[in-house]
Design a protein around this nucleic acid. Sequence first.
DNA 1: TCAATATATGAACAGTTGTTCATATATAAA
DNA 2: TTTATATATGAACAACTGTTCATATATTGA
Lengths: 109, 109
Amino acid sequence: MRPINEELAYDLGDFFKIFGDPTRIKILYALLQKDMCVSELVETLAINQSALSHQLRILRQNDIVKFRRDGKNVTYSLDDEHVGILLKNGIEHISHKNGYSYEEGGEEI
Amino acid sequence: MRPINEELAYDLGDFFKIFGDPTRIKILYALLQKDMCVSELVETLAINQSALSHQLRILRQNDIVKFRRDGKNVTYSLDDEHVGILLKNGIEHISHKNGYSYEEGGEEI
DNA sequence: TCAATATATGAACAGTTGTTCATATATAAA
DNA sequence: TTTATATATGAACAACTGTTCATATATTGA
C-alpha cells in the first residue's frame, strides 16, 4: 500500500484547519444564508470587528470567500458550494455521534 | 437572521480541527484503504511510534476510529463512512482551487 | 517468573493560532 | 479639505498543539 502523497496530506490538513475554528464556522454559516458586509457580520455574530477582519482575511486568502466593495462597505460571500456540503457533513457526523440535534426553541438549523 | 447555535459552532470547529493535521490525515487515509495495527502504521507512514499513538488517541477519543486488540497488536479502523466522504470533499476542493491533481508517477490516488 | 515485543502515556518544549489594542487606509458626505 | 464611517493590518501576548524522549503497561512465549 502506498501512503498518501505528502504534499496532499499537508494541503488537506491546511484546508480542514480553516474550518477548525468556531469564529470562522460562525462566519461561514452566516454567509451560507446570505452575502453580508463586515458591519452586518459584526452585528449578527457579536464579535469584535478586528477579530472578524483577521478571520475574513484567512478565509479570503484560502479562497473560501470572495468579496466586493460596495461604496464604504465590503460584502463577503462564499466562493463555492463545497463549503455548504462540508458543513452539512460535519453537522451530520457530530449529530450521529452525540445524538444531539442542536435545535433551539424547536426550530431547525 | 439567527446566527448558528453557539455550541454547534464550537463542536463543528472541534470536529474539523481533527482533520486539520497532516499526520492525522495520513493515518486516516491509510485506514481508509484497510484496517491496520500500530506497527503497520508506523512502518507505512514512517512516523515516530509515540507521535502516532498520541494521534491515535485523539482520533479514538473523538470517535473517528475504533480499535480492537489482537494479541500483542492493536488494530485500528475507521469508525464510520463519513470520514471518507469528508476527505474526498476536501481533495475535490483543493484540486479545483489549485488545478493540481496530486498524482505521482501517473497513478491515481 | 523473566525477557521480548507492542502500544500507551506524561512531561517538556518549540511552534502556531486567535484575540485585543492601537492605528492605518479607504470611501463618502459635508 | 475636513470629518465620519467602514474595513484592514501590525504587534504583542496568552493559549493551544504536535513532537520527542523517557518510561509505563500489556501480552506472549520461553
